[in-house]
């Protein structure tokens, strides 16, 4: 159907929106924690999808992976624009939400199981940090302040965790 969107098929686009907008709106909301901004970014996301559907095939991603990546990145861009000073960690949106959404299956459950299994091999604080970064758009600065460690220490920790994660994911 993304292929049809490349061909400017509006009904395909409409169906794609109906099937995926709730999930992507959820992603925007999680990152931005602000409905009005999330709504604006959601619009940017679908406008991007309409115009960039042709580049989708290049990425080789599964459709949902591509859509989530676009939604997440545009949300982070918006967050960074807005952010003039670091957000206190207490304001960070709640991260633990284990309810599987109806689209949970849209990303191969094996992929999800893999990242989840690998995250559990990390120091829990670091796994939490990776999640905060991915879903909350936190920076090294935010993380360092929250954990009360120097910036470079934070970066070293996280990079070690990323190395470990990579090692686990390619196992």
């Amino acid at each position: 159907m993304i292929a049809q969107i490349v061909l400017r098929d509006r009904s395909a686009f409409s169906a794609l929106y109906d099937a995926t907008s709730a999930k992507l709106f959820g992603v925007c909301l999680r990152v931005l924690d602000n409905r009005a901004e999330a709504e604006e970014v959601l619009q940017e996301v679908y406008i991007r999808i309409w115009h960039k559907a042709d580049s989708y095939t290049v990425t080789g991603h599964s459709p949902m992976t591509w859509l989530i990546t676009v939604a997440r990145n545009l949300s982070i861009d918006r967050l960074r624009k807005r952010k003039t000073k670091t957000k206190p960690i207490d304001d960070a949106v709640e991260l633990a939400d284990d309810r599987p959404g109806p689209e949970a299956e849209a990303i191969a459950s094996s992929e999800r199981a893999q990242i989840e299994a690998c995250m559990t091999e990390l120091d829990p604080r670091h796994a939490e940090a990776v999640k905060r970064v991915y879903l909350g758009g936190e920076t090294y600065n935010d993380l360092a302040e929250a954990q009360n460690v120097p910036l470079n220490t934070m970066r070293t920790w996280l990079r070690r965790s990323l190395l470990k994660l990579r090692e686990c994911l390619t196992r």
């Binding site: 999680r30 991603h61 989530i68 959404g101 689209e103 991915y134 994911l169």
Partner: peptide
């Protein structure tokens, strides 16, 4: 990108207001 995207699997869907779709169609 493919490794991290499943992290978003834990996010519950939230239906956007109908005007979002209308705005997108208006823009496109």
């Amino acid at each position: 990108e493919a490794h991290f995207a499943p992290i978003a699997g834990e996010i519950a869907p939230v239906a956007p207001p109908p005007r979002a779709k209308q705005s997108i169609n208006a823009a496109l």
